[in-house]
């Protein structure tokens, strides 16, 4: 038995510290593997991984694709226009079709919260949630945790501020769950229009100014502002948003002196983060996060397919 015996990875909420640590330990090994010249293994040879994406994504899809290929799996990308009506029906129909083809891992991104869970109830393969609506994005939280852990040696006791559009962010939710589970102290900083109601019940301290929220923090996690649907409704303008909530050197002046900056990407330079700061190698972990993403996804695919094999060997037939 491994420390992670689940069939699917649908979210961070509910995972134990041991499970998270185990996945991070596995990922560590894949970081070294990816850095060596011998990146490719045959661990998942004969396995089929399908990236089923109902939302546009370049980096997450590529990251999963690379992870699967480095492990020797056959990886197929399916991008489905999410605009069609009767999404629920389409989703289940698609799942049943794929299920009939005997695949091993389904990596799903969908604009509706709960879509990955729904699929997991209909298929025999392992499901990895690559982002469902405003619910969870577990591999993002894991890669963020791995990035921090490799820099700081651990997560316990760190003070982390998550800043920006928490209302629409699945990344924020997954990170809040993970950081809390691992003993970090989590703050959120946003205008009240961008905070989901009851967010304080998730175990975070709520701040409305960067000056107070960033005071003495170890890590600043910025979230993307989706400005096309934001302006006028949730915030008055990009100008005002950057003035009060955009991260720049001045706002970083109250953090711990060695505080580090993270962003799940893709960044809006000059909206939520100052361009120079984003590129500052002393402070910004943004590129490192991308590297860790591949390692984390390799670990997840490895662990989940191993669990499939175990389940099969234990199974009745």
């Amino acid at each position: 038995m491994t420390a992670f015996s689940r069939r699917h990875l649908l979210g961070i909420e509910g995972l134990t510290p041991n499970e998270i640590s185990f996945l991070l330990d596995q990922s560590d090994g894949y970081v070294e593997k990816s850095r060596s010249s011998d990146r490719k293994s045959a661990l998942l040879r004969g396995r089929t991984v399908i990236n089923l994406f109902f939302e546009n994504s370049t980096r997450t899809r590529t990251s999963f694709e690379l992870a699967g290929k480095r492990l020797g799996a056959d990886v197929i990308n399916m991008t489905v226009a999410a605009s069609s009506t009767a999404k629920g029906e389409t989703l289940i129909d698609t799942a049943m079709t794929l299920n009939a083809m005997h695949i091993d891992v389904l990596v799903v991104r969908h604009p509706d919260s709960g879509a990955a869970q729904l699929l997991s109830e209909k298929v025999n393969c392992a499901v990895v949630n690559a982002g469902d609506g405003a619910h969870e994005h577990p591999t993002q939280a894991l890669l963020d945790a791995l990035t921090i852990r490799r820099r700081r040696g651990g997560l316990g006791g760190l003070l982390v501020a998550i800043c920006g559009d928490l209302l629409h962010s699945r990344v924020a939710r997954s990170n809040i769950h993970l950081l809390n589970t691992m003993g970090a102290v989590v703050r959120v900083v946003a205008p009240r229009t961008l905070l989901p109601s009851g967010v304080e019940r998730l175990g975070v301290e709520v701040f409305h100014t960067m000056k107070d929220g960033l005071k003495d923090v170890d890590i600043v996690m910025m979230l993307r502002v989706q400005n096309e649907r934001m302006t006028g409704n949730f915030i008055p303008s990009i100008r005002e948003y950057f003035h009060f909530f955009g991260l720049d050197y001045q706002k970083m002046s109250v953090t711990k002196p060695d505080a580090l900056i993270m962003h799940p990407g893709p960044m809006n330079r000059g909206v939520e983060i100052d361009s120079d700061l984003a590129d500052d190698v002393e402070r910004s972990l943004i590129r490192e996060q991308v590297e860790m993403g591949v390692a984390v996804r390799m670990a997840c695919l490895d662990v989940l397919t191993a669990n499939l094999a175990n389940a099969a060997s234990r199974g009745p037939s």
């Binding site: 229009t193 302006t231 006028g232 949730f234 008055p236 303008s237 100008r239 005002e240 003035h243 009060f244």
Partner: peptide, 14 residues
């Protein structure tokens, strides 16, 4: 709200 039109938030902070 911008132009008192009740449609979009004005730049309240600034």
């Amino acid at each position: 709200t911008k132009q008192l039109e009740g449609e979009e938030l004005a730049e309240i902070g600034m």
